[in-house]
Simulated assay, not measured.
Amino acid sequence: MSREGIGPVVGLVLFTGIVLAGAIVTARVHLQILSGISLLLTLLVVNFFRDPERTIPEGEDYILSPADGKVVEIRREFEDTYLKGETTRVSIFLSIFDVHINRVPMSGRVEYFRYRKGSFVQAYKSEASEVNEQTAIGIENGSRKILFKQIAGILARRIVCNIREGNTVRSGERFGMIKFGSRVDIFVPENVELRVALNQKVKGGESIIGVFK
C-alpha cells in the first residue's frame, strides 16, 4: 500500500470496527447496513491505494508508461512549453479501479516543473489536458527530452508529486499519485517510435510507450 493511503485506510478500519461492534451489541438494522457500507468502502480504498511491485524493463532507449490505465488518445501536437516542437501526445485515463501510483518514464534530470491550478473536467475528455489542474514535468537525458503531466479529473482533487526541478530520477521509480480517478499525458518527440495503440491497457513503470530511434 502507498504511504498516502495509510491515513484514510486506518481511519476507515477504526470507523468500521466501531460501527460493527455497535451493530453486534445492539442488533440495530441501520447499524448493520452502515457497517456493511463502511466495510465495502474500506475495501475499495485499500484497493485504490495498492502499490504493486513492477518489473522495470532495462534499456536506455525505452520510454515507460508513467501510469496504469487505458490509452484514450494518441495525437500529434505542437508542445510549446518545454519541448517546443512537434510531438506525439499519449493520454492515459486512470479509472478508480486502476493502480494510481505514478512512475518516472525515463531516467535523467528534471529540467522543468510547473504546477497549474485549473478546472476539473472529466479526465477522459481531450480538453482536460489543457484546462484541468495539473503538474507538468520535463526530463532531459543528454539530447533526449520528454514531458509528462499529472492531470486531475472530476473526482481527483489532489495531485501528489514528490519530484522537483533539479532532481535526478530513474526510469520506473515512484514519484507520486493522483487521488481517485485521473489522467496522465506524455509528450514524446518525433525521434520516438511508439509501442502503444489506442485503447490499449498499460502498466506504470512496466509497459513501453515508445523507443528512441
Rank of each mutant, 00 (worst) to 15 (best):
D185H: 09
V99A: 02
R174Q: 04
P52F: 05
A128W: 00
Q32F: 14
R54V: 14
L39A: 12
L44T: 07
I178W: 01
A197W: 12
S107I: 02
E77A: 01
G85T: 09
P8N: 10
F187T: 00
E111R: 12
S95V: 09
F48N: 02
T135P: 01
K70V: 14
I209F: 00
S65R: 06
R157W: 05
G17K: 02
K117V: 11
V45F: 13
G108Q: 01
D80T: 13
I56L: 07
R195V: 03
V19R: 05
S35R: 10
S129V: 10
F93P: 00
T87G: 08
D185E: 12
Y124H: 15
R157Q: 10
R157G: 01
V25P: 03
T55L: 14
D68R: 00
K70A: 07
I208P: 01
V160F: 06
F97D: 10
T168V: 15
K125H: 13
F187R: 01
L147M: 10
V104T: 12
G172T: 00
L41W: 07
N47Y: 14
V46K: 03
L34S: 11
T42Q: 11
G108S: 04
R54W: 03
F180E: 04
E79V: 05
E165R: 15
V131Q: 02
E190G: 14
T16P: 03
G5H: 05
A23F: 06
G210H: 02
P105L: 02
G181A: 10
P66G: 02
M1N: 13
G181I: 04
E53R: 13
